[in-house]
Design a protein around this nucleic acid. Sequence first.
DNA 1: CTGAAAGCGCTTACAG
DNA 2: CTGAAAGCGCTTACAG
Lengths: 332, 332
Amino acid sequence: MKRTTLKDIAIRAGVSITTVSNVLNKKNITSYSEDKKQEILRIAEELNYETNLAAKALVTQQSNMIVVLLPPYMLGWIQESPFYFYLISGIENKANTMGLDVIIKFIKFSETVEELLAWAKSRCLHGIVVVGEINKSLILGLNKLDIPIALVDNYTQFKLKNIHYINTMDEYGGMLAARHLMEQGYKRLCILTSNITEEKVDYHRYQGFKKAIRQAGYEESLVIVNTTTYQEGYDISYEVKTMGVDGAFCTSDILAIGLMDGLTNLGVKIPEDFGVIGFDNISRSKENWLPLTTINQDVIKKGELAVDTLNNEQSWGSQVKVSVNLIKRQTT
Amino acid sequence: MKRTTLKDIAIRAGVSITTVSNVLNKKNITSYSEDKKQEILRIAEELNYETNLAAKALVTQQSNMIVVLLPPYMLGWIQESPFYFYLISGIENKANTMGLDVIIKFIKFSETVEELLAWAKSRCLHGIVVVGEINKSLILGLNKLDIPIALVDNYTQFKLKNIHYINTMDEYGGMLAARHLMEQGYKRLCILTSNITEEKVDYHRYQGFKKAIRQAGYEESLVIVNTTTYQEGYDISYEVKTMGVDGAFCTSDILAIGLMDGLTNLGVKIPEDFGVIGFDNISRSKENWLPLTTINQDVIKKGELAVDTLNNEQSWGSQVKVSVNLIKRQTT
DNA sequence: CTGAAAGCGCTTACAG
DNA sequence: CTGAAAGCGCTTACAG
């Protein structure tokens, strides 16, 4: 079953390939008679014509594909929540409305920057969405390809052509969390976070939390975990219990749930004796034996925004920030 | 920055494009002198050459891309677990080792079969992986494209060229669940499942469960839920409690966890008074306030197998079945 | 207003 | 052993 080409249609319609291409691509072209246009459309339909996108890509130098690059640590994390799946669905959804397809690529630990760049180059991508923290030289390398890049949840500060940032109001979220805990009467607060360096999302959540606490004249304790996972939260619960604090802000929901299960197991009553608040509002935070108070962010929207900014030259080097809000449930 | 082409290399090396193409593509071609080969490779490297995959696709009629098609109901489900994200990572991982890229596509409710077929046709796909239940006419339509299709967790029975099935040993898993419940001393068992029709995964889990129960001379009760979600499990718990049963097999882990939280909330003691077993072994079943006994399946492997079978003409129309095993935790 | 022709970058018979 | 040439299916100046 050979596929129909423009030539087939042209022959059948008794016109040139140029004409067929024009009619098919430029919906409101006026230079052809309505009759001729209808006839060509009819034949295309009849012959079941579909553009060969590879051919189109070759001549236009544009593949109509974007790629979502997921850093290696992501595979360990998806275990924790379908969070990034939502992000991807947002990306895919928006991309589709723009006639773009999305390739998904999990970066392997064994993959070198060069290999990745070679790959990206060969695909003539329309854009790249990078999720989370990623090798800086990779960003710089990708940037040399001269195609738009959207960095989601990434706090590097490249003020470059083609580079866009999509973030959450992490700092504000941290403040909301601190204020809520204080409002609920908790007095000795701690924050559980992963290693904090300036370029991490958790750092900004921590900064907001700290500011609000200090403003109120309180002190905060800092607890560093390796990764913000259920297991880490659970395992650290004994330490937290013995610290003499009565409230905790965890930089991810799954960490908060682990902590809360651990504390409960140690006989700590939540929310009576101890308040817990998370961040993200993953579905599990609601669907849990004790629904979790958390900071909500719209991750699907983040995905959509990422695709949007790709074509927006105005936003080169600048950050788009998605808003957050507090969702009070039963752990505070 | 114009990209390097074969022509650029050919000129620099003083050979023909054909020669360059041959050297670059056929690693162990012998017809050229080692010196010349090295020289061409060196120049390619120096000029930072990368194949233009669009051009290659055009001439070979093959894009080196596969697509993962996710049915519309999937978006509601991912909420429940990162289960399908794992599947995709398995697919992506295997595909990458074969030099294939994977496009991800969430089918929208508003999308017609025709639109989908038109899209698939235009992309010159190397293969299609379909996840879950999907419109039969879509399968048939895709099949007309004459490219390999792997159906994962799909129980239709098309014995056609290019059609492959990847399933789990669902029936056997159901049997394991029933036997385990009985061994643990539970006597009046029920199964919670979504609507059971022959072409659904849950149907087969139910069949296995029923068989084992009947073999043992017991009777089973059947509880139908709309979707196998946490909320449904939680909401049905009162009904289950009043049914006079002392054990339940839920066809998904998340449903089991919902049921168990609901029952616990009603004062039912698990596992003392009531046993619960799930299916899938999602990460949450382990990382839970009360770890869930469940039937484990290797979903990453399923993804890898799906890609594998794509190129295997032997398996047209036949089913590959991934094994399962019981994981005893604290709910039985 | 319409179409012949060049060209996108590659692969692959085929001729020398 | 090597390369000129055709061709994959499309778009787009440009000429008539």
